[in-house]
Write a protein that binds this DNA or RNA. Sequence first.
DNA 1: CTGAAAGCGCTTACAG
DNA 2: CTGAAAGCGCTTACAG
Lengths: 357, 357
Amino acid sequence: MKKSTDKSASGVKEIARLAKVSIATVDRVIHNREGVSEKTKSKIQAIIQKLNYQPNVLARRLALASRGTIRLAVLLPNISGETEFWQAPLDGVNQAENEIKQYGIEIERFFFDQNDEASFDKQVKKIIRLKPDGILFTPTFPEESIRLTEDCQKAGIPYVMINSDIPGHDSMCYIGAEIFRSGYLAGQLVNYCIEKDQQVLVVKIAREIDNNYAILRKEDGFRAYFSDNNIQNKILTLDSKQTDYAAVSRKLDQLIRKEKAIGAVFVTNSRVSVVAKYLQKAGLEDILLLGYDFTKDNVDYLKAGSIDFLICEKPQEQGYRGVMTLFQHLVYSNIIEKNYLMPIDIITKENYQFYRN
Amino acid sequence: MKKSTDKSASGVKEIARLAKVSIATVDRVIHNREGVSEKTKSKIQAIIQKLNYQPNVLARRLALASRGTIRLAVLLPNISGETEFWQAPLDGVNQAENEIKQYGIEIERFFFDQNDEASFDKQVKKIIRLKPDGILFTPTFPEESIRLTEDCQKAGIPYVMINSDIPGHDSMCYIGAEIFRSGYLAGQLVNYCIEKDQQVLVVKIAREIDNNYAILRKEDGFRAYFSDNNIQNKILTLDSKQTDYAAVSRKLDQLIRKEKAIGAVFVTNSRVSVVAKYLQKAGLEDILLLGYDFTKDNVDYLKAGSIDFLICEKPQEQGYRGVMTLFQHLVYSNIIEKNYLMPIDIITKENYQFYRN
DNA sequence: CTGAAAGCGCTTACAG
DNA sequence: CTGAAAGCGCTTACAG
């Protein structure tokens, strides 16, 4: 390794030397702090310009690291069998924490029950009381979520939402996919794979379908693809507020006996494995099946061939990126991008092995 | 922000205090350096264990930063109209450089002509003479590449290969896709979209087809999908060593007049836009067309609907990750993973807007 | 075999 | 409005 030669040619020290001031004054100018005469200020600024000075991030962090701790709050659904999906964003949060905990960041995690609005509310209250320096959450319940964002605004606490945003609400930052478009993409895939005379079935499985914005938007997108492109296949719907296999399979069985020529089934969330199980048992694996998320169950059925396509929006990266966004905003005053739209990935039996969530 | 309370509870200073030695001695033990008595050594090690000491990466880098410069060499094809693809890995290299140049990393770039083995050789010689601390390259010409890796091995210079690896050669590190599998995936997509009685056409466009391992492997993978799954569609081949539109379109026109019922065309590299142009002009857009890489031309035809699927392996990330791998190895002695297999992404008209290379 | 000291580039509390 | 000094946690050249 060659020795570097231009040691003196940069840094606050050099700027101070050239401006004939102390480094403290240079620091004041760099950070736009009060109490520097216009004259010295502009002299220093000129030198900074000329040297194209870039602060050494390392040194800055090191100097700040031990001053105080930045505390972030993370609010996500708890992870049970049915909501294994949420493990991925949490993994992303953990990964980010590992990378930045050296810099004095502490993350406190809060969990709520997706089927229980009150539990969300309760956790929100806890977080407000904690007064964290930043908040990462997913707005499963819009009303409470809006209230939370308003509280944040008032208290000047930055927040980031992941996985879905709040419809019609102007939020500070959303990291996730454009869910309407992901439904639209599903429409395209189905259209590639079915015959003109076949029917298409949209299945929605969730305790609270009507309040679940994401599920509804995906169906909208899906249907929009068909109408925008003048595709004539008939689209049927099946809703199930019971999410267990017994209930879902009963309903599916009824419908499929009645309707002939169903060419494709689109499940609007990660419950697609339940439908896969049914189709497999019923020997209906010719039917094209697609749905959401890279969960273990889903991938198993993908491997087995019952699921054809999984649409996936990098949930782990969402969690990771959400924490990092807050971190960089709080530590380096980086501006928070309003929307960071994740790619909408298509996973099949032949590329799942290489997928990174 | 709350003040951290356990300032003294970690760090070399604390270890030194507990062991009743100086921090220099602690440092010696941490880095396994000579010249510490067994007794002090084990005492210090015990304390490190007990405290679960993790060195502060920031401070370490800062202390080392200005000592010396690490020089990396990057060898990639030059970027012309036909090889616009290579802009992406280069962008990744630039991005990485921006992130780490603060830490005293210098990157020197070398370019060769993909159609000229001698130019590759010449640049390799230049690099060897330079004696860099690490090398990133793509092994377009296997023989010269093997020689390069052997030179590196002898000189103890770590290297990383991106985009494709050297067939049958045990290399230090490959960052890229498993190209056989990407051809296999193309086979799956085609099979979803064509009818039983249609034919499939594989098009290979490159100056040096027979020496181009990647192109051949993709076709192998594609054909393997059909034979593994007992799919009977006939597969035709069209090779063109002339890569310009006039030549390719002439050949395509001849073949397509002769053969009926071609349902899909698979182009084994980024030249798919040339085929798209022909199909568009000939009014043959019903034919399913798929190929490789997220280049401007390709995306334009994807938007227009002439290309149906693009397979893409994050070339920018390959360049980025390649540099970062060398950096982390050289600075933190991180072990280099032998293979980092990139995801194989499927891009369509409906998700390209969100894709990140 | 061991330690005291200077330095990496920045930030901040304090003094004036 | 400005500066001298101490400190972040680590590394290294030097002295003993």
